[in-house]
């Protein structure tokens, strides 16, 4: 089994996640897309661990998970706060910070 396949899969998932961030307007789905990108990165880390024969890649993936958890907590809290004031979860609604 060629490890390149794992990397290609990671690339596909990352691209789909990025696409989702750009085209979706629901803030929660945007967040999910970000999580998908992080997962793709984790997959690449795990693959790297296998190709190099060390566990460092897995540790990196572990740290990414920790950071992702923290990010999700704060991000969702922000979404809830915005929803409270603007009664909408669309990120296009929050566009006052502009020219």
């Amino acid at each position: 089994m060629n490890p390149n396949n794992y990397l290609i899969l990671a690339g596909i998932l990352f691209t789909i996640g990025a696409f989702g961030v750009v085209v979706r307007r629901n803030a929660i789905i945007v967040f999910m897309s970000v999580e998908m990108m992080l997962n793709a990165a984790n997959l690449a880390f795990a693959t790297a661990a296998r190709t190099t024969g060390t566990l460092d890649g897995q540790v990196a993936a572990f740290f990414v998970m920790v950071v992702a958890a923290a990010e999700v907590v704060v991000g969702l809290a922000i979404i809830v706060t915005i929803f409270r004031t603007r009664r909408s979860a669309s990120i296009d609604e929050a566009n006052l910070l502009k020219y």
Partner: peptide, 10 residues
């Protein structure tokens, strides 16, 4: 700078 986070992401 149109305020849309999605534009920036793009």
């Amino acid at each position: 700078q149109n305020g849309y986070a999605r534009s920036y992401a793009l």
